[in-house]
């Protein structure tokens, strides 16, 4: 006879196989829904694959989607490492974008000066946007989940106010947008800019340094068990504060890249849900910072798929539905991967 038992330590291989199955499950559900909509599956699949990977436009799009996802994913991931849920990457992303826009609009200087300044402004604005929730969480025990989330709405309305009010485009009359910025991130190829490369470098550097630094160890300890961290002589509150500041700064830098590299204007819908999708990216990456890269890639493919589906008259919300289904399937598969069948002699 046999029984199922739960492993305390789940081997990575089991998790990986489980996730492949989860991904397969999402594809099947998606296929069934598309078939019910009367679409030819072969045609849709071909269209998704060719337009994502087979065209220059598709590949560029993929790279442009991946950049902000990588940054917000890294932001959320860093928070999780300290046991914190930064739901506010969306707002910090917008704050960083706004600060970079201010530099781009009003600083009459060469790109050599204004780009580093814009990056610094993005970092600082993102950090500043998370500073109040960070301090509240670190010293007063106020849930960072609520405070970071609520600040997203404030950031969003602040951007709307700026781009319809004081910073509104009076040159071309674009709606809900600032005018085109005078400075931009240099491009690598086509429309793909250096922001993505910088993002990759940051993620890799973060992964390498946290595993090799005392700060990384103290952060992991504080996040895993604050009581034990106190016992080990680590001051938990400053670590939490700094971790959330860094988290906000990463998201802010992502906003700067988006506005100076991809969109070139501050716009109402600039954040595009990247902050929330960053949570998904971080969850997919689990404990490894390097896994943020394939996770962001997968998310970018899903966003691209969404666009293709939109051209086939499928609702734009399909992206959200697919993402939700994926998170759900992966949560279930990670849990199921912990169970093994145990053979017992009769």
């Amino acid at each position: 006879m046999s029984r199922r038992i739960r492993l305390a330590v789940v081997p990575a291989r089991r998790i990986f196989i489980g996730r492949l199955l989860a991904l397969g499950f999402v594809f099947v559900v998606l296929a069934v829904v598309l078939a019910m909509l009367g679409l030819k599956l072969g045609m849709v699949a071909r269209l998704v694959v060719t337009s994502t990977f087979g065209t220059k436009f598709g590949l560029e799009d993929l790279a442009l989607y991946m950049t902000p996802l990588l940054m917000t994913g890294a932001a959320v991931w860093l928070g999780l490492r300290a046991g914190l849920w930064n739901i506010g990457a969306e707002g910090q992303f917008l704050a960083g974008a706004t600060a970079a826009t201010a530099i781009g609009l009003f600083l009459p200087a060469s790109a050599l000066v204004s780009l580093p300044l814009a990056a610094l402004a993005g970092l600082l604005a993102g950090a500043l946007w998370s500073a109040v929730p960070a301090a509240g969480r670190a010293w007063l025990g106020v849930s960072e989940i609520i405070t970071t989330l609520l600040l997203n709405f404030i950031a969003s309305f602040m951007v709307y106010y700026l781009v319809t009010g004081p910073w509104a485009d009076r040159v071309t009359g674009a709606q809900v947008s600032s005018e085109r910025l005078h400075v931009a991130l240099p491009v690598i190829h086509g429309v793909v800019h250096w922001g993505g490369v910088l993002g990759l470098v940051i993620v890799v550097a973060m992964g390498l340094s946290l595993g090799r630094s005392r700060f990384g160890y103290e952060l992991a300890l504080s996040g895993s068990n604050p009581t034990a961290a106190h016992y080990a002589g680590v001051s938990v509150a400053p670590r939490i504060f700094v971790a959330l500041l860094f988290s906000g700064a990463l998201a802010g830098l992502g906003g700067m890249m988006e506005v100076l590299g991809t969109v070139h204007r501050l716009q109402g819908g600039l954040a595009h849900g990247y902050g929330y999708l960053g949570i998904v990216v971080a969850l997919l990456a689990r404990k490894s910072a390097f896994a943020l890269i394939p996770a962001a890639f997968l998310m970018a493919v899903i966003l691209n798929t969404g666009i293709v589906l939109q051209t086939l008259q499928v609702s734009a919300s399909s992206v959200l539905a697919i993402t939700g289904l994926l998170v759900f399937a992966i949560a279930v598969s990670d849990e199921l991967a912990a169970y093994v069948k145990l053979e017992t002699q009769k």
Partner: peptide, 25 residues
């Protein structure tokens, strides 16, 4: 709950009191 971080590895728990010192840190 007070002297160990249950979710962290045995290594990370073992060095909890010495991680500041040479040769570990």
């Amino acid at each position: 709950h007070k002297a160990l971080a249950p979710a962290l590895s045995v290594t990370e728990n073992t060095v909890m009191r010495v991680f500041r010192e040479h040769p570990i840190g």
